[in-house]
Amino acid sequence: MTTPYSTTTPPVPARFLLLGDSHAGCVGRAAQQAGLPFVGGPVGSGRDFLGPFLAIDDRGGGGGGDLVFRDAETRRLVREFLDVLGVTGFAGLGVPLVCTFGLSAHTVATRQNWDIHRDRHGTVPERFLRSGLFGDLVRAGVRGALAFYDRTAALGLRVLALMPPQRVPGMSDPEVFFAAQDVVGAELAARGVELVDLRARVTDGAGRQRPAFCQADDTIHGNLAFGRLVVAELLDRGL
C-alpha cells in the first residue's frame, strides 16, 4: 500500500478527497506536483475493497447512516482525512470524492477463478463474457464496492471513479480483465458515478496500456504521466 498523503493544510481549501487502493498513488503524486490542493491517498490494497468492507453508522436513526470502514487502519486514515476537511463524516463532505474502489480489474480477473468456464482451447468464451451469468459473478465479486457507491449515491455525494490502468499481469486473464471492468463501470455509472476513462488516450491497438504510461518497475500500475492525465481530466471536470 502506498503511503497516504495530503497536499492541503488550512486555510487552503481542498479541491477533492482521494480514496482508493494503490492505483490512487500516481494520481496523488501528480496532484502534489501540480500544487493542486487535495486530501487523501491510498488506504488499502485492491482486494480490500471488493468484498464487504463497510459498516453503516446509523446511530441517528432514519436509515441515512454514514459510512464506516470495518478495517481499523483504513478507518483511522479516513478519519484523519475527514478531520482535515473539517467534517464529521461522509454525509458532510463538501468536495467531490475521487475513488478507485472496486476497479482493481486484475484481481477480479485472476486466472484460476475462471478455469471452470474455459473451453477445450483453454480460453474463456466470448459468449460467456457477454452473458448474464458472467455479469452476476463480477457483481458478486465486487459487492463491497457496489455497496459503497450505493451509500455515496444515497448521501448525494459527487463521486468520480478512475478506470484502472490497462495492464494485465500474468496472474490475470486478459479477456476477463477487459470484460469485468466494463461490467463494473456500467454498475458505477448506473449509480451516478462519473467514470474517468482514459483508455482511448493511453492504450495501443490491442487495448493495453502504452509503455509511456506504465510504472516501469511493476506489472500493474500507471506512472506519473498517467497520473497527470487523470489530474488534467479532473480539472477539466471542474475539480
Rank of each mutant, 00 (worst) to 15 (best):
E233S: 07
A105W: 04
P165T: 13
G92Y: 06
V87H: 00
G156E: 09
G40I: 02
G132N: 06
A232Y: 13
E233F: 03
G60N: 12
V176A: 07
E80S: 15
R208I: 01
G227Y: 09
H106W: 13
I116M: 13
D66V: 03
G35H: 04
L137H: 06
A31N: 08
R111M: 02
L155M: 13
A91D: 14
Q112P: 00
V202T: 06
T8R: 12
H121R: 15
A180Y: 11
L103A: 03
F128R: 02
A186L: 09
R47W: 05
G46A: 14
V230Y: 08
L162M: 07
L18E: 07
L133V: 00
V176S: 11
G61Y: 04
V183E: 09
C99E: 02
L93D: 08
L129A: 10
V78Q: 11
L19P: 13
G102W: 05
T203K: 04
P42V: 03
D217C: 09
G51T: 06
R76G: 14
L239D: 04
F16H: 09
R191L: 08
T100W: 08
G238W: 12
R228M: 09
P37R: 06
G102Y: 06
R127T: 11
A145L: 08
L229R: 05
A31Q: 11
R151F: 06
A179C: 10
G65N: 01
R210N: 01
C214D: 04
R143N: 12
L155F: 08
V68A: 15
A212Q: 15
V84T: 15
T88P: 07
L18Q: 07
R139G: 00
G89R: 11
A161I: 03
L17C: 00
A190K: 08
G144I: 00
T7H: 13
D71K: 13
D204W: 05
F128N: 05
V95R: 03
C214Y: 06
R228Y: 03
R118T: 04
R59T: 07
L97G: 00
D66T: 10
P165D: 14
L234I: 13
V43G: 01
P164I: 04
E187I: 01
R79F: 07
E73M: 10
V39T: 11
T8C: 11
A153F: 05
G135T: 14
L17H: 03
L50C: 07
I116C: 10
V196D: 12
A31Y: 09
A55Q: 15
M171I: 14
G35M: 08
E73R: 09
T107E: 15
D83F: 02
E194N: 02
D218F: 10
M171K: 14
D119R: 08
A180N: 10
Q215P: 02
R143V: 06
P10T: 10
R70S: 08
L160V: 08
G132V: 05
N223R: 03
I220D: 10
